[in-house]
Design a protein around this nucleic acid. Structure first.
Lengths: 346, 346
DNA sequence: GCTGTTCTTGGAAACGTTTCCATAATTGAG
DNA sequence: CTCAATTATGGAAACGTTTCCAAGAACAGC
């Protein structure tokens, strides 16, 4: 006969399990953690009680004692951006499969939110950190990150001492620009994200490279890094179109920005591809179904998320070994549709 | 002189702070938790040491002792769906502001992932739970949820004993259907989500109501609940169009589905609004910029997320008081564009 | 001036695990 | 057959907080 219940109707603890099974607490712990040197009988007896009581070990106690929380932090500037949400989605699936829970921190491009998240990561003893694209000029954040000493993986972002998974934005920017130059364009506007965020930096680099290889100068006035939040692209495009030397082609981001660009074209009475050529970065329903359909640079977002999660999990598991931190690149793919043409003769 | 450092270079604990400040551990704890009855001198002395050492309390220990983790669970079927990611984004902002961290669980419509997440919520002692739209026929999940005894808020979902925040999908479905009936349509197809998910259930109810008020019968073959994942809409639309009595109007979901519908129309050589009328639910770039632009039923996703988070936080804070669990409804808004017309005369 | 509150602080016992150490029983080598 | 190594279990000390309890100091009422 077991003694009278010490816990009236609360959640059972490992001690309850041990008592009911007539074994020691440490044995229960060992069984639950699949340690070796356990007799089959003991295992069976304990598991029976565990199932009967519906025992679930308390993560706080586990984290406190074993210094691992089975938790992965995920820092992203804006989860409502489909580009990010698709990567996060894939990463989360991978982490979930491995028994980890994802802690989301949306920073909205604010450095104080970034450092606050780092603090949360430390206090909660998270086991690893997924760092999505963000402003690389945030010094406070960078130094806070450096003190963390935790397995990290950057996604479209460079992280000192950690590997990163990235789309080949430079190559993509190069390919698109070269294509437009090949059509005869000489004034190509590039509307991309903030300059200090890796994908934009790389994209601009590819854009320049294509110009250089063609022996053309780059007019930096045509490169328009966009601040966050849509709507800004609209005025930028208007300004460009109404300026003294308007562009004959535009490369723009697909999410949150293509729509504004199309609005701007429409309100200036300009048609693509006849008046101007248009390429967008990041495939969207709109790019596919606009009339005419818009040529797009695309890449596999889910794959990036998956690879990042897997890479991080590897590092979390065998953390001691120093591993290589070379970035992993995924290719971009240029989808030709009907939004580009040779520039009009003057 | 302080005694020699007990912790070589690890993170300082509350004990280190107490020792360095020459006070008791409980005093430090009280200062950090802003308890009353503390002399200003003690407060100042302790805070100085806290700042100097960069002490950050360990959440695992706090959670273990105080049974609160400052963590909110967020269960959503698919975070890559823009409908959800926008709501999650707004909710996360609200929670972050209040000092909570969001734990994301993407269930991908699988009941075992739902119950697994409930288990994680319990084990991690999360303080509250945000439950997004999901299949309400999952009995195991429902009973697991019932045993949880935790502040919850449903979002576009009914949760027994908890309040919910919802868009008025029934009213929206009614309005759109009535509008199409008013134009003269008698065969209106409705492509919506799985029938067991609240927004679809409500939408169909509104659709029926509009028919009833107009004295029309509902042909249930025209109501096509879509399984998850895009592409299914395509074959459904083709089947409808090629059937004996094709619809003269289609109401479809905007995200992940409108594009397939447009493809299906195109490949059947059918144009809107001349051949068929089209309304989409959930405003998207595509609906706005398609030619012709597509009339849309929309509502404020961010507001739903914010209200849900605030409601949950209220419940978390003063949990004892029994509060009312009446659902909070947000209105939908019908945006008239150019995708609908009177049906062709036979 | 005495007594009963209210402030202010310290000491120590939880919270629920994991893990170190000890010990008994079993196995294997020579 | 003996001794060392291995296997299987139990006991108890952590992990880093919060919170209960106690107690001394200050303060008010009479």
């Amino acid at each position: 006969m077991a003694r009278t219940q010490p816990t009236p109707s609360l959640r059972p603890t490992i001690r309850d399990v041990a008592a009911q099974a007539g074994v020691s607490v440490s044995s229960v712990s060992r069984v639950l953690n699949r340690e070796p040197h356990i007799s089959p009988e003991l295992h069976a007896r304990i598991m029976r009680v565990v199932d009967r009581l519906g025992f679930e070990p308390d993560s706080a106690a586990q984290a406190l004692r074993s210094r691992a929380s089975n938790t992965i932090g995920c820092m992203v500037s804006d989860i409502s951006n489909p580009l990010y949400s698709e990567m996060v989605n894939a990463a989360e699936e991978e982490l979930q499969r491995a028994g980890y829970v994802l802690m989301l921190g949306a920073t909205r491009h604010a450095e104080e939110r970034e450092t606050a998240f780092i603090s949360a990561v430390r206090r909660r003893r998270m086991d690893g950190l997924l760092l999505f694209a963000g402003d690389n000029t945030h010094r406070d954040f960078t130094s806070a990150l450096a003190t963390l000493d935790l397995p990290c993986v950057g996604i479209d972002r460079e992280v000192p001492g950690a590997p990163s998974v990235r789309a080949d934005h430079r190559g993509g920017g190069f390919e698109v620009t070269r294509y437009l130059i090949g059509l005869g364009h000489r004034r190509i506007a590039l509307l991309t994200g903030p300059a200090a965020v890796l994908p934009s930096t790389e994209r601009v680099a590819g854009y320049r490279q294509a110009h250089i290889e063609a022996g053309l100068d780059v007019d930096l006035d045509l490169v328009r890094p966009q601040v966050h939040g849509s709507g800004i692209a609209f005025s930028d495009v208007c300004q460009l179109l109404q300026g003294p030397a308007p562009p004959t082609a535009i490369i723009t981001l697909g999410t949150h920005m293509l729509a504004s660009v199309m609005d701007a074209l429409a309100s200036n009475g300009i048609r693509y591809p006849s008046d101007i050529s248009l390429v967008c970065i990041g495939d969207t329903d709109l790019a596919r179904h606009a009339t005419p359909a818009i040529s797009t640079l695309t890449w596999d977002l889910s794959e990036i998320g998956r690879i990042a999660a897997k890479t991080l999990l590897e590092r979390v598991r065998d953390g001691d070994q120093v591993q290589d931190t070379r970035p992993i690149y995924l290719p971009t793919r240029f989808i030709l549709r009907h939004s580009c043409a040779e520039p009009r003769a003057k």
